[in-house]
Each structure stands twice: as structure tokens, then as C-alpha cells.
Amino acid sequence: MEPPALSEHAFLAVAVPALAGLLGLAVGSFLNVVAQRVPAGRSVARPPSACPRCAHPIRARHNVPVLGWLVLRGRCFDCEAPISARYPLVEAGTGLAFVLVAVRFGADPEGLRLLPAYLTFAAVAVALALIDLDVHRLPDAIVLPSYPALALLLAVGGDGRALSRAATGAVLLGLFFLVVWYVAPGGMGFGDVKLSGLVGAMTAYLTWGTFLVGAFLGFVLGAVAGVLLMAAGRAGRRTALPFGPFLVVGAWSAILGAGRLGDLYLTSLGR
């Protein structure tokens, strides 16, 4: 008896996340380079990655995401200097993020058209979160080019009404953050204002509920983190915290499912 044929939906549900995960591992390896070099104004293409202690270029076989670090047991092949566990963690984390995005968008042909845009946004979010945690900056070199790149990707896979909603969401959240930045100087950096437009566009493209939850969660997560750090004695009222990571985590929580709560809320208001 022949096994039942695999439906197109079931095939996409398995194959797309698997391929996206492999892509995410490779992208995560590149994002490690981006997070180190972009804040310093260095090229992400040259020179090749090398050990910071002995300056020996990393061999291709040791540059395989996650596996290379495990094979080397976390040490340079040439001088045995320790290699931070952050490298494989970023690679694995980006791979997992890509899998989650693929599960969200890759199970049907309509979602597949949006997959490139949201995978790109995931990569941008990871890079910006890492840099903001390291140096408390959100570089224009990443944020500003993301606007036309993501707009183009959404336009290729989207419809006019959703694109209009995305543009409106970008303006609304950007203006809101601009007002907060102006009224409470020091509460956030201007890089957060520029990033907020991306978040507004990518969340509002899906639904207004996703937009509301994404914006709200960013502030809630930032406030909770601040309170916890103050309670632990590691921050004061005037301590500047990087807000970018909370903003992108809030956005992605909404995109991956929490936005449905916002949709339910807006639906209840309309009754």
C-alpha cells in the first residue's frame, strides 16, 4: 500500500522552516561581523574574519556556523585564545528566529510572498539589538537603508491596502516616538525614533492590532527591565538603557502571534 501523498501545505510547513533555519545560521554568522564592524565604521566585507589576538585569518572549515566553534572547543586554532560563546549563540539565535518567521509566513503561497521582507526585518532586528546592547547606538548605516529595502520587499509581495496601512503605521509610531524624545530628552535616543518607523510599518502591514501590541510591548518590556535593574541595584533613575532591543522584541512578539490580542481588542471596540 502506497503512503499518502504529502500535501503542498504540509510540504511547505516542513521544508520552508528547515531551509530558513539553515539560511538563518549563515546570516547569523554575518551579523556577528556586522555587529562588530559597523559601529566602528569598518567594512563588513574586508578584511576576512581573523583572530583578534594572533590576527590569523579564520579558516573556511572553522567558519561553519555553530559547528566550527564546537569543533574548535571555543578556542582559536592557531593561538588557542578563547572565542566568545556569543558567536555561536547569535548564529543559533538567528537560525531559530528565521525558523519562527518561516513558520509564521511560510505555510501557504500568500505568506511566502511576505517571507523575504520579514526575514530581512528579522536580520535587521538582530543586528540592531546587538549593536544597541554593545554601544547604545542604532547606526544609520543599517536603519536608513532598511526603509527602502523593506518597502520594496513588501511591495513585491503585498497589496495596496496593506502597504497604505504600513506607511500610516510608520508615520504614526515615528511621530509618537519623536514627541516622546522631544518632551523627555534623555529618555531615549534619536536612533530609537528612526527605528520606530520601521517597527510601525512592519507591524501595521499585518493588522492594526499587531501595530498596537508591538508598540505597547516595547514600552512595557523596557519599563519592566528598568525596574528590575533598579531593584537589583544595577541601574538608577537616570541610567540610560538601550531601548532598541525592547522595541524589536515587542514588535516581533506581536508579529509572531501576540498581535492577535490587539485584533481582539479592536474588534471588541467595534461591537
Rank of each mutant, 00 (worst) to 15 (best):
A60V: 10
G169H: 03
A10K: 07
L256F: 05
P116E: 15
A107M: 12
G157A: 07
L212V: 01
L154N: 02
A149Q: 08
P52T: 11
F211T: 01
V220T: 11
V180K: 14
V143D: 07
L23F: 13
V179R: 14
I142D: 10
V103Q: 10
I142L: 15
V44S: 06
T210M: 00
P48M: 11
A151V: 12
G28R: 02
R161G: 05
G270S: 14
L6H: 04
V101H: 06
R161A: 12
I58R: 11
D192W: 09
A35Q: 04
V227Y: 12
L195Y: 03
P47L: 05
R137D: 14
V248K: 04
W252Y: 13
T239E: 05
Y87S: 01
D140H: 13
T239W: 14
V71P: 01
L22M: 04
L247N: 03
T207D: 11
G111E: 07
F121C: 09
F211Y: 04
F30K: 04
G174L: 08
A151E: 04
E110K: 06
G21S: 08
G233N: 06
A10L: 14
F176E: 09
P48S: 14
C76A: 14
T267W: 05
V220A: 06
P3Q: 15
A55Y: 04
A151F: 15
L112Q: 05
L175V: 08
V44P: 00
L256W: 04
V34T: 01
V64Y: 11
E2R: 09
A127N: 13
L206E: 00
V16I: 11
A151Q: 06
L12P: 01
F177I: 07
V179W: 15
P4A: 15
R59T: 01
L150K: 01
G200I: 06
Y182R: 15
L195F: 06
A162K: 10
H136Q: 02
V101A: 13
P39M: 03
M202H: 02
F121P: 01
S29D: 07
N32L: 06
F176S: 15
L130P: 00
L119R: 07
P3H: 13
R161P: 00
S164H: 07
G41Y: 10
A15N: 02
D108W: 10
V103M: 10
A85L: 13
L212E: 00
I83Y: 01
G259R: 01
V16T: 02
T120K: 03
A251F: 08
G93V: 07
D263P: 07
V179E: 12
G68Q: 00
G236V: 09
S196C: 05
L12H: 08
R165D: 08
D159V: 09
A223Q: 13
V183Y: 11
H62P: 00
A107D: 11
A85R: 11
R161M: 08
